[in-house]
Amino acid sequence: MEKPQLIIDGKRADGRALDELRPIKITAHVLNGADGSALVEWGNNKVLAGVYGPRECIPRHDASPYRAVVRCRYTMAPFCSLEEHGRSGPNRRSHELSKVIREAFENVVISEAYPRTQIDVYMEVLQSDGGTRCAAITAAAVALADAGIPMKDLVCAVAVGKIDGLVAVDFSKDEDNYGESDMPIAIAPRNGDVLLFQMDGNLTREELSAAMEMAYKASAKISELQAAALKAVYDGPKKEAHLVLGDKFNSQ
């Protein structure tokens, strides 16, 4: 495929400014079975997160007498992309992402409160359009809070980088594929700690610094949306969890 023009008259292909996020909708408590859950719809991404625990650590020899073991699993549904039918289950990419996401959450989850247990964080990408790991981290943080797991902060994440020579935030699939650099960052908004940092492509030191600034600005907005989603659960009686995804409803 030929590289599409990503920036036209200073605006991006979908009409956004360089520092503008796609529309983000966060809904907490969407599953009944899970101890905590959240859906993040971010542009065309739809990522569902569910949390179980603290529960008995299995196998037992993985348990720690000092803290809970945090486990993360990021996977993509076979029907999530516009391209061909994918394979179910994790691949090399999702194993790597699961690991770095777990390490990010190990920083904020107060795991010492639950020795000899495990906390499972499942992230399912139901629809993908660039930036799924950031949407997954943002969803998982809300799901952990919805489960009542003690944490030092709510983590949020956003990708920044460079497209058509300009630093920008929150890349769509095309921008991710044809841009010069992609840099997903997870941030603890309270103290600004960077908990996940990946980067590929080429950036000068100045560009990297400018991109990080942009990530911090965007993260403030995302963290507001996370807070609002959690507060909405307790705005009135707590309802049965119900996922809303489609555009047409039929019911009996």
Binding site: G36, I110, A145, D146, G148, I149, P150, M151, K152, R190
Partner: peptide, 27 residues
């Protein structure tokens, strides 16, 4: 928890008038 002489919440909770936290969920 306390960090840099300030106190922060760890769980989703209600802040009561006497400054204590009442968790809304959790194990």
């Amino acid at each position: 928890y306390v960090e840099n002489n300030k106190t922060y919440a760890t769980v989703l909770s209600l802040l009561s008038d006497d400054g204590r936290l009442v968790p809304l969920c959790g194990p």
